[in-house]
């Protein structure tokens, strides 16, 4: 997937991954890659600013859990109710966009 397209959809990808279970950064990157069959092969560094932005916006919240390899608690991201609502809206927008595209072809 081309980078511009990916950047625009990163929020949607992250919310979708976290909809099912709370995960920490590295696992989120892996999940996004595996569950999309490698199509979402983004620069992993771009993930963290996106996660922090979504947290600041109230769509995600964080929780410190088990200790990681660096001896510090791993930061898990959880989707909030606002996040779920946003995901529903974003999905609807996406379906609308896809239907519109199908109509064009």
């Amino acid at each position: 997937m081309n980078p511009d397209q990916l950047r625009g959809n990163l929020d949607l990808i992250l919310l979708t991954v976290l909809e099912r279970e709370a995960l920490y950064g590295f696992r989120i990157a892996q999940e996004a890659k595996t569950r999309s069959n490698g199509l979402f092969d983004f620069r992993e560094g771009s993930l963290y600013p996106a996660l922090h932005r979504l947290t600041q916006a109230g769509l995600l919240t964080t929780e410190d859990r088990e200790l990681g390899r660096n001896g510090k608690p791993r930061k898990y991201y959880l989707i909030t109710e606002t996040g779920r609502a946003a995901l529903t809206t974003k999905r609807a927008e996406w379906t609308l966009f896809r239907d519109a595209l199908d109509g064009l072809s």
Binding site: G25, Y48, H52, G68, R69, N70
Partner: peptide, 16 residues
């Protein structure tokens, strides 16, 4: 500190 810990954990886990 927060971002640092998070990135460090990511790098160490990927490296492992």
């Amino acid at each position: 500190d927060d971002v640092r810990d998070e990135l460090e954990e990511h790098i160490l886990e990927r490296a492992a």
